[in-house]
């Protein structure tokens, strides 16, 4: 079983990202489970959402403490929240940042820094970074196919909004694939 923890702020679409990643993984033939860290959600407050992937039925219900992957939607969170806590050796951290990473990262964790905010502004016209980061996650982790991700986005969003979000995901996907 592999586990993903998404760190964001209320309003950034972390829960939606978790759900769509799970949908994409399921469509790709895996078992998947997505759920939020339940709280009194407020815009701007730190939030978490979780995804599990496995090739068999997932029974475990606890939150995720030792993730294989993390997605950080907002790098200002790193001042307040230990986003790397419990990360597994060899884990992948996908961090939305426009600057170079200037804080300590645990040994053995691979960091993918991506300017998802600029991508989102360019492709969607809004600083909503979740779909771009989903694209980066697909490229970096290999857990989900881009085509499955595209389908999941289309199921959730209609028309122009779906097209723009897929473009954001694609740009981030290509950027991570290109850098690898």
């Amino acid at each position: 079983m592999r586990e993903l923890r998404i760190h964001g702020r209320g309003g950034q679409g972390s829960v939606t990202a978790a759900e769509l990643i799970a949908v994409a993984a399921f469509e790709g033939g895996m078992h998947a489970q997505a759920f939020p860290a339940f709280g009194v959600e407020r815009r701007g407050a730190p939030v978490q959402a979780f995804v599990r992937f496995d090739n068999k039925k997932i029974r475990l219900r606890s939150q995720i403490y030792e993730p294989d992957y993390i997605i950080v939607q907002d790098s200002t969170l790193i001042r307040d929240v230990n986003v790397f806590q419990g990360m597994k050796e060899g884990g992948i951290a996908i961090i939305n940042t426009e600057k170079a990473i200037s804080y300590p990262v645990p040994e053995g964790v691979k960091v993918i820094a991506i300017d998802a905010t600029s991508i989102a502004l360019q492709k969607i016209g809004l600083p909503i970074t979740n779909t771009a980061l989903m694209g980066a996650f697909a490229a970096a982790s290999g857990e989900i196919d881009f085509a499955a991700l595209e389908d999941a986005v289309k199921r959730r969003f209609k028309g122009d909004l779906a097209t723009k979000n897929i473009a954001a995901a694609r740009a981030a996907y290509d950027s991570v694939k290109g850098a690898a």
Partner: peptide
């Protein structure tokens, strides 16, 4: 929450 808000097959 643990079940009601969880996506699973």
């Amino acid at each position: 929450f643990i079940l009601s808000h969880t996506y699973e097959p």
